[in-house]
Structure formats: structure tokens, C-alpha cells
Amino acid sequence: MSHAKTTGQKMWMTVARTAAGAAAIDLAASWCAAYYTFHNDSRKRRDPERVPSGDQYLPYRERMLELIHDLQKRPYEEVHIISDDGLRLMGRYYHQKDGAPLDIMLHGYHGTSIRDFCGGFHIAWENGHNILLVDQRAHGDSEGHTITFGVRERMDCLLWCRYAVEHFGTDCEIWLNGVSMGASTVLMASNLPLPPQVKGIIADCPYDSPRGIIRRTAGQFTIPIAFLYPLVRLGAKLFYGFDPEEASPVQSVAHTKLPILFIHGEDDRFVPIEMGKHVYDACVSEKYFFSVPGAGHCLSYLVDEEGYRNAVCAFQSKVRSSGR
């Protein structure tokens, strides 16, 4: 074997090792990025009394805890469905009266239904509705460890609607409610074959797409977003079996027929109001937008309880009067 051939072989082996090392680093980095973004360990799921820290939440902490404690005292029936991918999902059903409208409520990312709907629950209850508080997959007492930012959760929402019709009858009037990721989830479900019993959607502080909110959240790190997001998406595909760009609220509301009430705090520093307006502008169905000056993320009800209640009641009244 000639010296030149030996040198060439060594060079290609070096290139191959370098490429393999770079690929291994990319895989490791994508796993870490995806794990941080999508994984939720059941041992670390937050309890409903854990109020977010920060100056926006401090003035409303006592009122929020008061509402949470009131909700924790209320009796409920534990109900379950099985997701398309075999997860046992749990909900808390609060019965007020037979034949009453049903509100299905989906909480936010790393949230709990009792905390995130401590205000919305009371509006629905005061209006005589029955209520189903859902533990989204990988949250609370529902199975799973992967949060998909609404991609798979939207299919769970569809199944909860079908469950409601099966158990409460074809005359059941259903309203979908969501907060933060839950708001984006119900919007992403809006173009699915939902039962006709679903009359409308109330979406509080939704983001416009999983891609958009992941990229925005990634901005807090020193790694450039243009580099980090592709790693997150690659990790989602390779290790968690889904594509965060498979669905989005903007795409879904462009094909929905359901009336939608959009709610957003004007000082939301996590999901900026511009995201909510982006989804609103893309919506082709009957739509309304209620914003609350000075309200941070998921704080619109607490900042303006009367205005929030009036907006929800007026929306549902308009939808009913239209004969939908």
C-alpha cells in the first residue's frame, strides 16, 4: 500500500469520525432541548396552590388562593377517557343540574385546571352550567410525560367532546374553554369534526403556534433562536414522535365555523397580545376580542372580574340568539 493511499485513508477516517462526533453532539443537544421543552415528570407536576411568582401576580395572589380554596372544597365526580395513543386521561366533573350546558375547560402548560380556571369556573357555575375540568395529558392525574403544545392535545379535546355527548345526551350544549396552552388547544381543535353540540369557544391568552411560543420562550437563553429551535423540533420528532409544526391555532381558525371569543391581557409578558390578535385576524368565523388593560398572563379575570364575566355572558348570549 502506498504512502499516499494510507494518508488518504487516514484523512477520510478523520473526516468520518468528526462527522460522527458532530452528529452525536447534535443528537445529544436535540434530546436535551426537547426534554426541557416537552417532558413533564409526574413527580414534579405542580399543585393548584402554586401561584406564579413575579410582580404581576403578587397583587392578586390572595384572591387567586381564595378562589382556588373554594373550588377545592366542591364535590366532583372523577371521569376518564382513553386517548388515541392509549393514555388514560382524567377529568373532574361538577354537576349542577340535568340538562344544563356543559363547559369543558383545558388548562395551560405546566398548569392545573383548578388554578387556571379558579375564575372561569365561577362564571360558568353562576350561569348554571355543569363543568368538566380536564387534566391535560402529562399533567395532574392524567397519564403521559410529553407535552405537545396542543398538537396531540387537540385530539384529546375532540375525544372529551364525544365523551360529553355520549354521557350527557345529544341535547347537551357544549362550550370549550381554554387558558394559555389550553386556549391554543381548543383553537387547534376548532377545525376538527367536533360534535354539533359544541356551540362556541372561549380562548384566554392563546399563542399563535407552537413554533412561535417555543421560539419566543427560547429567547431567554443565550443560544441563538435560529440554532436552538431546529434542535427542539428535531428532538420532538426523534424522541417524542410528533412535529410541533403539525398544527397551529392560526391554521385551524382559518377553517373553523365555530364562534370564538378571544380574551387577552394587554400586558401579557409571556404570550404577548400580538399573538392573540394574530389568531383573531386569521379567524374566519364569528369572532370577538376582549382585552384587559394592565393584565398579565392568565390574569384578565382577576384584573377585571366584572368585565370578564360580562364579555363571556354576552358572547354566549349572542351565540344562542343566533340559533346555532
Rank of each mutant, 00 (worst) to 15 (best):
V250H: 08
M90H: 13
H129D: 07
A295W: 05
I260P: 03
P224K: 13
A100D: 05
E126T: 09
A24S: 14
K73V: 05
A247T: 07
Q72M: 15
T222R: 15
M275S: 10
T6G: 13
Q316A: 03
W175Q: 01
C161N: 08
L258K: 06
I68G: 02
G120R: 06
G54C: 05
G276C: 07
N310H: 12
R46S: 13
D41F: 00
A100C: 08
Y60H: 14
H129E: 06
D47L: 11
A22E: 01
F121A: 07
Y35P: 06
E77T: 12
L194K: 10
V186S: 02
A100N: 09
L261G: 04
P193N: 10
R233F: 08
D171E: 10
G120H: 12
S113P: 14
D135R: 06
E166A: 14
D84K: 15
S42I: 10
E245N: 14
F315P: 01
I25T: 13
C161P: 14
H264S: 13
W160H: 01
G294H: 07
S142V: 03
G128A: 07
H167P: 09
V151P: 04
G235D: 01
V134D: 00
G99H: 12
D84N: 12
N177R: 15
A28F: 00
D243T: 08
R92I: 01
A314L: 11
S2K: 15
F262A: 09
C161I: 03
Y240P: 00
E153S: 10
R320D: 07
D267Y: 04
G235Q: 00
E245A: 12
S291A: 11
R17E: 04
W160T: 00
S291I: 05
Y288C: 09
S2V: 02
G91C: 06
W125Y: 06
D267V: 03
A254C: 11
I213R: 04
E246C: 13
G219V: 04
S190V: 00
R45M: 11
I202Y: 00
L58M: 13
H95F: 10
G21V: 00
F38K: 02
R61H: 14
G169H: 09
I114G: 03
F290Q: 10
E78S: 14
I223F: 07
A138T: 02
I225A: 13
R216F: 12
F315M: 03
N127V: 01
V271T: 11
C32K: 15
E266D: 09
T7N: 11
M13G: 14
A254P: 13
V179H: 05
I114S: 06
M105P: 01
P206W: 02
I114W: 04
F117L: 04
R17D: 00
H145P: 04
A20T: 00
